[in-house]
Amino acid sequence: MAADPTLINWSLLALDPPGWGGVLLAGLVNSIKIAVGGYALGLALGTGGAFGKLYGGPVLKDLLEVYTTLVRAIPELVLILLLYYAGTDLLNQLMTALGHGPVDISGLAAGIFVIGVVQGAYSTEVLRGAIKAVPAGQIEAARAFGMSPTQIMRRVTLPAMLPHAIPGLSNLWLIATKDTALLAVVGFSELTLVTRQAAGTTKAYLLFFCAAGALYLGITLISNLVIRIVESRARRGMAAPA
C-alpha cells in the first residue's frame, strides 16, 4: 500500500488507533445522539407551539409567531452560535445567582438545546399545517360528545393529524441529522469535525470526507426505509394519494 502514495490508503480507516475509523464512528454516534435529542426536543416544542399558535391567546400567538419568524429568517449557523453562547452564558449566570459555582455545560447538552430550538420552530409550522388539515367537523363532533380539550387533543386531533404531519416531520428528521454538522463550527466533535481533524492530520482529505459522506448518506437511506414503513402504517385505511 505504501508503494504508491497516490493510491487510496484504506488502512487509515481501520478501527484501531493508527487508523481513524473508530474516531469517525464515535463522531457518528455523537451526531446521532444530538440529532435524536434535538429532534425530540423540537417535537415537544413544536407540539406546544402548534397548539399555542392555533388555540392560544393573542399574546401567546404573537410571541410564537415572532419565534417561528426569526428562526425561519436567520441562518441556522448564526442561530446556533447565538444560542450556544447565550444559552451557556445564561445558565452560568443563573447558577451563580443561585449560589452555585459556574457549571461546565457538556457540548452534547448544548448541541441538543440549539438543534432543538431550531427544530422546534420548524415543527411548529409543520404540525400547525397538519392540525389545520383535520376536518373541523371531527373536532366539533368530539366537543359535542363532551370531551375536554386535552381529551380532544389526545383522542382526535393528534391521531387524525398524524398522516398529514409525517412527510414534513420525516423531512425535519433528515434535516436534523444534517444540521448536526453545523455544530462543527462551535467546536463540538461530531462527525464532520472529527472528519476534518482526521483529514488534516493524515492529509487524506478525499478519503475521509467521502467516508463521512457515506456515513451521513447511510443515515439518510436507513431513515428513508423506516419512514416509508411508518408512513404506510399511518396511512392505512386512507385512500391512496392521487
Binding site: K178, A184, R196, A199, Y216
Partner: peptide, 14 residues
C-alpha cells in the same frame, strides 16, 4: 443526503 458543510469541505480541502 449529506450535509452542505461536508460537501463544501470535500470540494475545498479534498
Amino acid at each position: 443526503g449529506t450535509p452542505l458543510l461536508l460537501q463544501l469541505w470535500l470540494l475545498y480541502y479534498g
